[in-house]
């Protein structure tokens, strides 16, 4: 069947006008709607954007500006020095020392922290009698924060009255100057940090293990995999996204740690626990050198950026996403 389509040319002129008007109305209303979408959208972004502008973007720019200047003791700009703050940093022993300390602290805390978390999570992964109590105990350190944890360990580390040295004496060993011996101080604050972070690592790895599908484990068991094979060949690869996340986060935290050194050792003895952020704090808020302090904080920014980039480029290739 054929229909005769009415062509526009045959319509009365008044109809055509009405049609055009309708189209125009629809267009303006669409434009108005688009405008309204924009207004609403930006109104919703404004609170966050404003806060970021004042407390993030502006300070970032200001840090760059400060890093090129010297400041007087009251924090005002004294002189433009170009990149001298940076070159002074790169040639100072203190800078390289704090980098080395931060690197060692990262090494001492990240790997033991992950291993401890894995062991705890593996031991509590099977539903057995009493597991909930152990889960609670192993999660408990998340209730602690740097203030409370550091004060408790300060007492435990005490050279004459502390529990640690008392137990060493019971074992017939010589006491250790935990916080005042340059050989031990960094290890001591690392032990405390691993303990404090163990709750977070445990919770992450435990829930990672719980989310592994039961049928995968069953079929592996039927194929004759023992508990160790099961853990190394099946669970670890399936946990790799969580492990990767924890590695990135722990390294970031280690590079940004401050409270340990501030409360327990004040960066000492002999700078052996002076981590990077503690150096920034000392430079900017004890010595009031805002210029060099800003330069140091920008170096930290660059370091973290590079480290994270490397981890995503190198490590993430080994991560198994389901």
């Amino acid at each position: 069947m054929m229909f005769m389509q009415p062509s526009e040319g045959r319509l009365p002129a008044s109809w055509r006008q009405a049609g055009r008007r309708k189209l125009a109305v629809r267009q303006t209303s669409r434009r108005r709607m688009q405008l309204r979408e924009n207004v609403i959208g930006y109104a919703m972004l404004v609170p966050s954007l404003l806060l970021f502008a004042v407390f993030l973007f502006y300070p970032l720019g200001k840090s760059m500006y400060l890093s090129l200047h010297l400041t007087d003791p009251r924090g005002r700009i004294a002189a433009y020095v170009g990149f001298e703050n940076f070159t002074a940093l790169l040639t100072s022993d203190a800078f390289w020392n704090s980098l080395r300390v931060t690197g060692l602290f990262t090494l001492y805390t990240v790997i033991p922290g992950l291993v401890l978390g894995l062991v705890l999570a593996a031991l509590t992964s099977r539903p057995r009698r009493g597991m909930r109590a152990f889960q609670l105990v192993f999660s408990m350190p998340v209730a602690l924060s740097i203030g409370t944890a550091a004060v408790i360990w300060m007492m435990l580390f005490h050279p004459t009255m502390g529990m640690l040295n008392y137990w060493l004496s019971l074992a017939g060993l010589a006491p250790i100057q935990w916080l005042t011996d340059p050989k031990w101080a960094l290890i001591s604050i690392s032990i405390m940090t691993v303990w404090m972070n163990s709750g977070f690592n445990y919770i992450m790895l435990h829930s990672g293990l719980q989310s592994i599908r039961e049928d995968i484990l069953e079929s592996a068991t039927i194929d004759g995999a023992g508990p160790v094979t099961l853990f190394v060949r099946i669970k670890l690869p399936l946990l790799s996204p969580v492990l990767f996340f924890l590695t990135v986060v722990s390294i970031m935290h280690a590079f940004q740690s401050f409270g340990q050194s501030h409360i327990l050792t004040k960066g000492g003895p002999a700078g052996s626990t002076e981590v990077f952020v503690y150096s920034i704090y000392k430079e900017a808020f004890v010595n009031y050198q805002l210029g060099t302090g800003s330069a140091m904080s920008l170096v930290l920014f660059m370091l973290l950026l590079i480290l994270t980039l490397i981890q995503f480029l190198v490590l993430e290739k080994k991560v198994h996403y389901q």
């Binding site: 972004l45 966050s48 954007l49 970021f52 004042v54 407390f55 993030l56 502006y58 300070p59 970032l60 200001k62 840090s63 400060l66 924090g75 970031m252 940004q256 952020v277 920034i280 900017a284 808020f285 805002l290 302090g293 800003s294 904080s297 920008l298 930290l300 920014f301 973290l304 950026l305 994270t308």
Partner: peptide, 24 residues
């Protein structure tokens, strides 16, 4: 664009902003 900008702020460590924020 704005979403990208928001995401990029996650890369800025808080320590970089601490001196100017203190001044503010």
């Amino acid at each position: 664009f704005w979403f990208g900008l928001f995401l990029s702020t996650m890369m800025i460590p808080w320590e970089v902003t601490i001196i100017p924020n203190y001044m503010t």
